[in-house]
Design a protein around this nucleic acid. Structure first.
Length: 494
RNA sequence: GCUCCCAUCGUCUAGUGGUUUAGGACACAGGAUUUUCAAUCCUGCAACACGAGUUCAAAUCUCGUUGGGAGCACCA
């Protein structure tokens, strides 16, 4: 398959008609990995021949996504709409050597034909007679349609064999295909023509793409043959399906990779997970560095069956990746993410040293960067939510006022330098012994007062980071709430 | 309708005729630990779509059935 590793040239050729979705990213990733593995070149080509649907905005989104994912390209991006002369050159060559012809059939006639085929439940294959018409007949036809298209002449007999690197040998009957359009009436080429011309001119050695292109592949082979070009290696990767088992639409917003970026997933976690969708090692390794992926990737180990995207596993991989990072690295990633999701205003006044302490404390519990935000808000943006039943129950329990009053007194007398998790816990435990309470009867009210909710970081470490002043404030606040509710209660009574 | 692709736990997969009472990972359930939620550790649950054939032997090879996916555009 590879006699000369120097010559590996692959491309990723998205059409800018939507943002990059996971399927597209996997195609990009596999191409990129393959190029890196063989020390080849990775090229980006923007397939923007669909003028109506392609936009500059999507071009930017696609390229930005590639950069965020760190999938850098060696050549390009090339834009097909800037290469029209090239396509026209080869189309005229095809016309000259009688591999293609002008077709004057009207769209109406063609769609009528198609409807008929559907009605009769026959396969649709448009048969155009333009090339057999006499000059006079052709003139009649031209009157109805001034803007012809160019159709490629498909061999009417025989078979076309694709030797796919993943799927193996696939045989197509040539009679399946009608003469297909390679040049639109508006003068732009269609996908199959532009793709072949570019892949040839860019000296692409291996074409790795989704197997939704498999059925079209023979059409491209016809063009290669008509122009006398060597056919590259094909490798068609199975689809990634959504959790309904359906093909992921290009416009599916929820599956846009940027959506995952927004939710706080790491770029490398996404790549790691996506690599596992349709590729594996014999030892079923799960966590890879990008370097390992480069080393271990091979087309032969791509799986045949389509894969369903499972966000739970992505979460797990993201957590694992965050585990392996240093606090400093996570801090930096968090800050970058905050900028990306435009939450700077929240973080602006946060003390960096404190934030890093919080990250250290909760390091191995974070699933996503967004979790850091949630936990940090407990420290910086305090809110006692006492509308929750469970919290109310603890806050207004018999002993909670006693515990909080005692704690407040004790903590107020603490020296700041002595306000450490160990000391505080020791005090709380002694308090429990003194009043013959269960530790939870002491810990829970303090937790509610300090954290405002039942879940959260280790209580005494949290208090240490918050510092004496803040803890005293929060406990006082909670006591006020208790007193206020008492007053309300007695008012009602009277 | 036609053509092509695919078929192992809920999900991603290992497995290329005997080493397999089918391995790993996620998820799920239970336990340990704990001031909470987690994290961690341990345990458990759970699959070869079906039917023929080839063979001493089949998840693995062949054929058929069923099921799923893709394509059949002046979309890519």
């Amino acid at each position: 398959m590879l006699n000369n590793n120097q010559n590996v040239r692959v491309r990723f050729a998205p059409s800018p008609t939507g943002s990059l979705h996971v399927g597209g990213v996997r195609t990009a990733l596999f191409n990129w990995l393959f190029a890196r593995h063989y020390n080849g070149k990775f090229i980006i080509r923007i397939e923007d021949t669909d003028i109506k649907r392609s936009t500059q905005e999507y071009v930017k989104i696609v390229l930005d996504t590639m950069l965020w994912l760190n999938l850098k390209w060696d050549e390009g991006p090339f834009f097909q709409m800037q290469r029209n002369d090239l396509y026209l050159k080869y189309i005229s060559q095809l016309l000259k050597n009688k591999s293609a012809y002008y077709c004057y059939c009207t769209k109406e006639k063609i769609s009528k034909n198609k409807l008929n085929a559907q009605k009769k439940k026959k396969p649709f294959k448009y048969i155009c007679n333009c090339k057999e018409l006499s000059l006079k007949q052709l003139d009649e036809k031209k009157k109805l349609n001034q803007n012809p298209v160019v159709r490629f002449i498909v061999p009417k007999v025989g078979t076309t064999v694709i030797n796919d690197l993943i799927k193996g040998r696939i045989v197509f009957n040539n009679t399946l295909f009608g003469d297909f359009i390679i040049l639109r009436a508006n003068g732009t080429p269609t996908y199959n023509l532009a793709c072949v011309v570019d892949d040839y001119n860019m000296k692409i050695s291996h074409i790795l793409r989704g197997d939704d292109h498999l059925s079209n592949c023979p059409k491209q082979v016809f063009i290669y043959n008509a122009l006398g070009w060597k056919i590259p290696y094909f490798a068609h990767i199975s689809m990634i399906l959504d959790n309904n088992g359906k093909r992921m639409s290009k416009r599916e917003r929820t599956l846009s990779v940027l959506e995952y970026r927004r939710e706080g997933y790491l770029q490398e976690a996404l790549l790691n997970y996506i690599a596992l969708l349709g590729w594996s090692t014999t030892d079923s390794q799960q966590i890879f560095t990008l370097n390992e992926l480069q080393q271990k990737f091979s087309i032969q180990r791509c799986s045949l069956n389509p894969a369903i995207f499972d966000v739970k596993k992505l979460v797990w991989i993201n957590k694992e990746k965050m585990h392996t990072k240093s606090v400093e690295e996570i801090y930096q990633l968090f800050i970058d993410w905050v900028k990306y999701v435009h939450l700077n205003h929240i973080v602006q006044n946060w003390d960096i040293a404190t934030l890093k302490k919080i990250i250290t404390l909760e390091h191995n519990k974070f699933n996503t960067l967004n979790d850091i935000m949630q936990v940090a808000c407990l420290f910086f943006n305090y809110k006692l939510m006492y509308n929750d039943d469970k919290i109310k129950k603890i806050l207004f329990s018999v002993n909670s006022e006693l515990v909080l009053i005692e704690s407040l007194k004790n903590f107020s007398e603490h020296e700041q330098y002595n306000f450490s998790a160990g000391t505080l816990e020791l005090y709380a435990r002694n308090l429990a012994v003194k009043y013959n309470l269960k530790t939870s009867q002491v810990f829970h009210p303090i937790r509610i007062a300090v954290a405002g909710k039942m879940s959260g970081p280790s209580l005494f470490h949290m208090m240490e980071i918050l510092g004496k002043e803040e803890v005293v404030n929060r406990i006082s606040f909670a006591l006020n709430i208790i007193n206020k509710s008492k007053e309300d209660f007695s008012n009602v009574k009277n």
